[in-house]
Amino acid sequence: MSSAQAVLDRAFAPLQAAVEAKRIPGGILGVIDADGQRATRVIGSAQIVPAQRPMAEDTWFDLASLTKVIFTTQRILALAEAGSLDLDAPLISAIPDFRQYDPNAWERKVTFRQCLGHETPFPGVFPLYTYGSDANRLRAFVLQHEWPSGPPVYSDINFILLGIALERLEGRAIRQMDPGRGFAWSADPAQAAATEFDSWRNRVVVGEVHDENCFALQGSGHAGLFGTVRSVLDFAQGLLAGQGASALIRTPVSDRRTHGWERSHDGWSGGDNCSPETIGHTGFTGTGLWIDFARGSAWTLLTNRVHPTRHFDSGIVALRRAVGDLINQG
């Protein structure tokens, strides 16, 4: 039995318990060990409302904020390494009309690096989708709104702006860009894990992006990517092998963050047993990916914890930490 299989055997128990307790409909845990061996295990249902479908190895997940690290961060850092942008330049170098009616606006000084590290004064959340249904008008709103300034927090606005910068630099909409091998911007509903019954869209969301702002923007840098456990593990294995892995994804910008990623710290989603060389990220729909460069290992926990509603304590925070602790036990 591979060490990956042994790790999976002990780390699967918290996910199994969560599904059996009906806190989460279903999920998949996938691990990569230091020898590059993989193991995955599936449990529960991909959908329970209005009809039940089993979770499968090839189920597609709305990866939510994993989009930030798998797609947007990779693309921004690649452009920086190619000399197409300066990470310490303000966003207006790519978006000159950002807050164009106030030359002294603080927003015009925000840099790419600050957005990648969530070191900006933007608010943590903002319901853009309630301001209209025209994607171009909503982009204009993002760029011209006088944003309240507060202490740095994790904010989708950072990556919505990075997505707009990508669109300007590449001359096409995000959904016209290649999402990467094994990834997509939507999925066949018959093969996708369902997310929430959305009262705004008045339907169970499945195969289309759950995030309301991304849906209204018709593609964004902060959410929208779909993938399978295989594609997420392929991506992680590539980073471990140094393929397309900028050193900046491991370079701190604060005590909790690198460029795009979260880094190992007390109380974080990866648990307490990670090496200091571990980075990770989570997604609101119940997804997550963690990569330990010191051990040469990685794991992904993909769930549909918001199905059929986010307004329920799924225990996802404790579940992620419990899985991480068991994976890195001993």
Results as ranks from 00 to 15, higher is better:
residue 1 M to F: 01
residue 2 S to T: 15
residue 2 S to L: 09
residue 3 S to H: 15
residue 6 A to N: 10
residue 18 A to K: 00
residue 31 V to S: 00
residue 31 V to G: 03
residue 34 A to F: 01
residue 35 D to C: 11
residue 42 V to F: 07
residue 49 V to C: 02
residue 53 R to E: 09
residue 54 P to M: 05
residue 55 M to E: 09
residue 57 E to M: 12
residue 61 F to T: 11
residue 64 A to T: 08
residue 68 K to Q: 11
residue 68 K to H: 06
residue 68 K to E: 06
residue 69 V to H: 12
residue 72 T to G: 10
residue 73 T to N: 15
residue 75 R to G: 07
residue 76 I to V: 14
residue 78 A to Q: 13
residue 80 A to F: 09
residue 83 G to K: 13
residue 85 L to R: 05
residue 87 L to H: 11
residue 92 I to Q: 11
residue 93 S to Y: 03
residue 93 S to K: 13
residue 93 S to I: 05
residue 94 A to S: 15
residue 94 A to C: 08
residue 96 P to C: 05
residue 98 F to V: 00
residue 100 Q to H: 10
residue 102 D to Y: 13
residue 105 A to G: 09
residue 107 E to M: 06
residue 108 R to W: 10
residue 109 K to S: 14
residue 112 F to W: 05
residue 120 T to W: 10
residue 123 P to M: 12
residue 126 F to M: 09
residue 130 T to M: 12
residue 131 Y to W: 10
residue 131 Y to G: 00
residue 133 S to K: 06
residue 134 D to M: 00
residue 139 R to M: 08
residue 147 W to S: 09
residue 150 G to K: 08
residue 153 V to W: 03
residue 154 Y to I: 10
residue 156 D to L: 11
residue 158 N to T: 15
residue 158 N to R: 12
residue 161 L to R: 01
residue 165 A to T: 01
residue 166 L to D: 00
residue 168 R to Y: 07
residue 175 R to N: 11
residue 175 R to I: 13
residue 180 G to Y: 03
residue 181 R to Q: 07
residue 191 Q to N: 13
residue 193 A to G: 06
residue 195 T to I: 06
residue 199 S to Y: 01
residue 201 R to Q: 13
residue 202 N to L: 04
residue 202 N to W: 05
residue 204 V to D: 03
residue 221 G to K: 12
residue 226 F to H: 07
residue 233 L to A: 04
residue 242 G to Q: 10
residue 243 Q to L: 04
residue 245 A to D: 02
residue 248 L to D: 11
residue 253 V to T: 15
residue 255 D to F: 12
residue 256 R to E: 04
residue 258 T to M: 13
residue 263 R to V: 03
residue 267 G to A: 07
residue 268 W to L: 00
residue 278 T to M: 15
residue 280 G to N: 14
residue 282 T to A: 12
residue 282 T to H: 09
residue 287 T to E: 02
residue 296 G to C: 09
residue 297 S to I: 04
residue 299 W to D: 02
residue 306 V to M: 05
residue 308 P to M: 01
residue 310 R to K: 07
residue 319 L to P: 11
residue 322 A to D: 13
residue 323 V to F: 06
residue 324 G to F: 04
residue 326 L to M: 06
residue 329 Q to G: 03
residue 330 G to L: 02
